[in-house]
Simulated scan of single mutants.
Amino acid sequence: MLAVTLPKPASLEAPAETTVLPVSERSFSDERAVGVAVEYGPARALTSGRTGIVTASTCEKGAALTSGSAPFSVDGSPVIALATSVPLWRDLAIGAKGSDVVALRTELARLGAGVEPGDTVNRATLLAFRQLVVNAGGTAAGVESISLGAVTWLPAPSIIATECPVAVGSQVGQGSALAGLPSLVLGARVSPLPDDLAEGQRLVRIDDQEFAVDAEGAFAPVDLDRLAATPAYAAARQVSDAEKIKASLLLTEPVQVYPVPPRAIIEAGGSFCVIDGGSPTKVDVLASQLGQSFVRPTGEGAALSEIALDPPSKTTCG
């Protein structure tokens, strides 16, 4: 009889305990999925400047209403939508002056109607308006002034109709709503703002748009119209005014960090450090996600290469 002891298969050997971990630098933007809460003003509407019967309408819920077009006709005459900075409030004949005239001529110039900005209604202003009427299927005959009943005010050059309550054949009065418009956006902010963010200026990404936000996550007023033009904003509005916009919050300028296991970090005397190459190296802990901590050496030009996973409990950070 011969007894032979076979070696233990490698797959059954106890794994060697790892005491150090090679680390490498990576870019870190601290991106978080967040919601954006919007503060809305009162509802708005496209209104009729005169009483009559609606004889034509191109209004469609969810479609854009644009300045220079005629989304409605009343009593057979086109109603021209104009995005003037000041709503027109009176009939404007040749020779009229005022802030409303300045707003009208500025918008006609923007539309490429061959009018220079100015403060007086001249013949060129009237001819430009007549051409808008003709382009909309109306006739120039009888257009001797820019009648208040022939225009309707848009708060922006292009804006989405939220509803179209008036059908062709309906009777409308002066001031009647022809189309619903989105409520004015008064403000927007990240809500809630995560409380464990890495320090640094941040931006919010919504669809393909990026918006700077302050330390409290608030949007700048100049960006609110651009926010209201995103598909994500429209999707949230279709649910309710309380629905938050889905977005990402991230650092404006990504930073270089080292991902390390939390157990490798020593906290002593209000400082943090890791054992790198056998010596303590002070680090800033920027954030923690998914079981990893993201650290950055504090010294000028400092780097990490191989850190101890279980540093001695009495180690100090120096």
Rank of each mutant, 00 (worst) to 15 (best):
F28I: 02
P155K: 00
T152C: 08
I80Q: 06
K8V: 14
L21W: 02
Q131C: 04
L2E: 15
I53Y: 14
L6N: 06
P157A: 06
C273H: 05
S85M: 01
A212K: 14
I160V: 13
L148E: 05
G142K: 09
V34R: 07
F129W: 00
E116K: 09
E107S: 04
K97G: 03
G35F: 09
E253D: 11
A56F: 09
V115M: 10
P231W: 10
E216Y: 11
S271R: 11
L126N: 08
L127T: 13
L65D: 01
T84A: 01
P192K: 06
V166F: 09
T47M: 14
G187E: 10
E144N: 12
Q209V: 12
P182A: 09
T66S: 09
V213I: 15
E306K: 14
L309T: 07
C317S: 08
Q174Y: 08
R226S: 15
G278R: 10
E210Y: 12
A247D: 13
S158F: 01
Q131H: 10
V102P: 01
L286W: 05
A141F: 03
T298N: 08
P192W: 05
G52R: 13
D214P: 04
I265M: 00
R226G: 11
L88N: 04
A198N: 02
I275D: 08
A141G: 06
A140C: 00
N122D: 15
G187F: 11
A179T: 03
L184F: 11
I245D: 08
P9Y: 09
G187V: 11
A128V: 02
V102Y: 13
G318P: 04
A215Y: 11
G41D: 12
A218N: 10
A64P: 05
V74A: 10
V101T: 12
G35V: 08
L290P: 02
S145K: 14
S67C: 00
D241I: 02
S77C: 10
P192S: 10
G112Q: 10
G118Q: 05
V274L: 00
R296V: 10
R130N: 04
A43K: 09
G41Y: 09
L2I: 14
L65S: 01
L186H: 15
A242S: 14
G200S: 02
A63P: 00
S176R: 05
A70Y: 01
L193K: 04
E31S: 01
Q131V: 07
C59E: 07
A141D: 09
V74C: 11
A128R: 00
G299W: 03
G76C: 07
G68M: 07
A302E: 14
V255Q: 07
P9Q: 03
T120F: 01
T230I: 05
E31I: 01
G299S: 11
W89T: 11
V151H: 00
T120A: 03
S248R: 14
T152V: 07
V172M: 12
A96E: 13
A234D: 13
S73H: 13
G95T: 06
A109H: 08
S85W: 05
A10T: 11
V74Y: 12
